[in-house]
Design a protein around this nucleic acid. Sequence first.
DNA 1: TAAAAGTCTTAAACTAGTTCATTTTTTTTC
DNA 2: GAAAAAAAATGAACTAGTTTAAGACTTTTA
Lengths: 197, 197
Amino acid sequence: MNFKASHTLILDNVSRFIDLTELEKQKYISLLTEIEVKKKDFLMQAGEIVTYEYFITKGCLKVYTLDEDGAPHISMFAVEDYWTGDISSFMTKEPTRYYIKATEDSELLGVSRANYDLLFQEIPKFERFYRILYQRSLISYIRRSNYGISLTAEERYIAFKKKYPQIVNRITQKDLAAYIGITPEFMSKIITKVNRK
Amino acid sequence: MNFKASHTLILDNVSRFIDLTELEKQKYISLLTEIEVKKKDFLMQAGEIVTYEYFITKGCLKVYTLDEDGAPHISMFAVEDYWTGDISSFMTKEPTRYYIKATEDSELLGVSRANYDLLFQEIPKFERFYRILYQRSLISYIRRSNYGISLTAEERYIAFKKKYPQIVNRITQKDLAAYIGITPEFMSKIITKVNRK
DNA sequence: TAAAAGTCTTAAACTAGTTCATTTTTTTTC
DNA sequence: GAAAAAAAATGAACTAGTTTAAGACTTTTA
C-alpha cells in the first residue's frame, strides 16, 4: 500500500524500534490527526491541558517556558522527524507550563491522549515502541541535565553546533541564546569569538 | 507467599505501575541478584561496560562523572526505593563515563542485561513497567535539564532541599556542591546565607 | 517600497560564582 | 581516645556572564 510522504516519515520512525504489519500500519495511521501551524502561531500555551503528542513532518518549532521576569527558556527546537509536546501535562492532565511556537510554517501529526491509550490496547507492540523511545530520550536528557552546570556557555554553544548543525542555521541567535541559557548580547560575543578562531 | 523485606520493597515499586500474579512475582524475584556495597566502594567505574541496572534497598550512593580537570559532577544521589545505573552503557554495551560510589553501606538488587531481555519475553507486562518508569524519569529530567541554565545556584539549592529533604542531611556539603554545580566554598556561603534568613 | 519592528553588535559598569590560601571543625582510623 | 585526614568556613583577588544603552543591519508588514 502507498502512504503519503508524511505518513511514510512517521512509519519509518516507528519502524526503527518495532515491526508493523500492513494492517497495523493502516490502523496506526487512522489514529493520527494532521495539523498545520503557521510561522509565529502557537501549538500550545502555558495553562492549557495538553491532549496531543506531536510528530513533526515539516518545519521547525521552539519549545519554551517563561520565567517570573518573562524571559524565555527554550528547552528544544523540534524539526522534521522529531517528537514533541509536553509529556507531563499529556500524562497527568494538569496544565502545561510550556509554550510551543512555530519558527517556520510547519506540519505535524498528532496522537490524541484517547488514541494513545487505545494504541496500547489495539497494538500492544507500541508499549515496546514507547519504552524504547522514552529510554533513548532519557539517555539524552540525562546527559544534557549536566551540561548547564558543568560546561561554560561557549562550550555549550560548540556542543550544540556539533550536535545539531542543520538546526543552527534555521534559528535566530536570540533563540539560540535562550536555549544556551545566556543573554543575546553574550551569545553575539561568543559567536564572534568562536568564528574568529 | 512471604518475601524478604528487600524483595517486598522492589515488588511494591513494580506494583505501582503493573499488577503481577504470585507466580510472576516469584519469577521476577528469581531474576534478581543481591549486591552489597560498603561505604566508599564503587558499584561502577568509568571505562567499564555496565551489565546491571540497580534498585537500592538500603543505603545511599552518588552517581558522578569526572571532567578533564578531575572535578566530579554528581548527577544523582540514589537512596532506598530508587533505580540507578547507567542506562546508556547498559543498552549500548559501550563503556560508561560514570562512577557510582556508596556514601553509606548499601544493599541493592541487580537486574543483569540478560535477565532484562529475558524479562520482556517471559513477562511482557514489563514493557509497560519500563515504559512508564522511563516516561516518569524523562519528565523529571526534562524539568531538570533547564535548572542549570535558568536558576541561580542559590535557587537550585533551595529547590533541592525542598524536593529531597531526607537526602540533604545524609550527604556532605562538598558532594552537594558537586551536584548543584558550584565550588564547596560557594556552597558554604549559600548555606550560611539561606539559613540566616 | 517605505516605515516599523525586530535582530545583531559593541562597549562600559556591574554581579554571581571561582580560585587560592588559611584556619577551624568534624570524621575517620589505628 | 589521640593523631591524621577530610570537610567546612572565611576572606581577598579574579573571571564568566549580565545589564543597560545606543547604533547598524535585516526582516516584516501595510
